[in-house]
Design a protein around this nucleic acid. Structure first.
Lengths: 258, 258
DNA sequence: CTCGCCTTAAATGTCGACAGAATGGTTTCT
DNA sequence: AGAAACCATTCTGTCGACATTTAAGGCGAG
């Protein structure tokens, strides 16, 4: 089973890939953005939580300037809310916003899938197949966290194959915002198996170079995810992560102390 | 005929609406971002031109910190390129990038048009009709600049009517990047008339609450624009604005001196 | 005359400081 | 007791400064 620490590290890697994709900045601000962003995505920093620059600067042992810029980067990814003259806050999403994001992400993905179908080569399919195997493995172990990260890797490769960097950049930004609720959906009964099935069929659609089929599968998958999230929201009245986050919070404190 | 100064002011307004949309920051950094962004969009600052923070700070009579943050905002809109340890530069686009942007923008617009069709009320249609009248007026006067700004207003209202702020935000960002080449397309023979016709039909599709028709019209319009841009690119070998920018450069100098 | 090195000038990333605004707690008034 | 006003504290936005790095220009070699 994937540990919270592994998941956090994975989140950092993914965020680094998105934020510092253009130029490989090993810069201070990129590092801060990755770490803080990962903690937001992992729920270590709960929605609406204060992210004041003084505290963060202390924590990273820097001045407030790089912290400020890192938070601006995260604001542009939709993870942080910066109101003028107020403290930056971890952003919280209403269900309607999540719904918007899913619909928007769906059309972007659809475009990229169509474009990918035209360019995809057998090696690309092998890469996807390898990731799919790991997804299947995680599914059998019922490891939702591991599955979700493999799923992210699958989508990352898939969208890269489209060659449309503009669309990929926007899609990745939207993906980041939904990482938090993604597991909520996958943790619902049968969702893991269904998702795996969808991805398997998607790969087959690519093998057959069938964009219409790929599009239909993706559309169905997005819709099913959203339905699962809506059900969760209607049932619990919130989209925040449940309290098993506590274990993670301890890890955070351990890190802060070190 | 719309003067360069009017066009510049319009560009500032539009950029302000996009950047400072969330929270109305009357802040220094928003102001700098709007002004600099407008000059980039208007071609006063040519592609690949240096945008060093010292000079900008002098020009706006501030320190480098707000300038830096303004440039980060513009980088996120795709108007500026910031390589670490190098001077920020006005971003230049290859034709392939422009093509990506158009395709991506098309699917986003398509989504919003579909969602708008479901929510649109008669008052919305009246608003669009009023803008369309102004477009017709500009078309008859062959005022490409005025037409293009009215067209932006049309799209702005149209996308707002979708109610999908997430998609709108991304679409607007892409729109910003294409403002520069937009006029290139509209200045081609018959493009103004064709565009007007497309918009007229689009409005009719909304009146009839016909999302399929709206989608088809939009797709055709985007494609035609891209074809016009491609033709221009193939003919001239560049996407930079032609030399009638000189008049604008003078205006810039006048402003800088004042 | 051109190419490449080296020096000089200028710009970047980061810092600590400060005025003014927001936050949170306490006191006062009803 | 509850609400409102007040005050102290904390944080934000902005500034000028400094070390390090990049860009520019001059100088010499080929």
């Amino acid at each position: 089973m994937m540990t919270p620490e592994q998941s956090l590290a994975q989140a950092q890697t993914v965020i680094r890939g998105i934020i510092a994709s253009q130029h490989d900045r090993p810069s201070l601000v990129a590092q801060i953005a990755c770490e803080v962003g990962a903690e937001i995505v992992e729920g270590l920093i709960p929605p609406d939580h204060d992210l004041n620059t003084v505290e963060l600067a202390r924590r990273y042992d820097t001045s407030r300037t790089p912290v400020r810029e890192a938070l601006i980067l995260l604001e542009n990814e939709g993870l942080v809310d910066i109101a003028p003259r107020h403290r930056p806050r971890g952003r919280s999403f209403t269900f309607d916003e999540i719904s918007e994001i899913y619909r928007t992400r769906a059309v972007l993905y659809d475009l990229m899938a169509a474009e990918a179908t035209l360019r995809i080569v057998n090696e690309d399919i092998e890469v996807l197949a390898a990731i799919l195997e790991r997804m299947r493995d995680a599914c059998e172990r019922h490891d939702v966290v591991a599955y979700s990260w493999q799923s992210v890797a699958f989508h990352d490769n898939n969208t890269r194959m489209s060659g449309n960097n503009t669309a990929k950049r926007m899609h990745d930004s939207l993906l980041l915002r939904t990482l938090m609720v993604r597991r909520l959906a996958l943790a619902q009964p049968d969702r893991l198996e269904r998702s795996l099935e969808d991805h398997t069929q998607l790969l087959r659609a690519y093998e057959n170079r069938n964009p219409a089929l790929a599009s239909a599968i993706l559309g169905a998958n997005h819709k099913a995810s959203l339905v699962a999230i809506e059900a969760y929201f209607k049932r619990t009245g919130t989209l925040d992560l449940p309290e098993d986050v506590n274990g993670l919070a301890k890890a955070q404190l351990a890190r802060a102390g070190a």
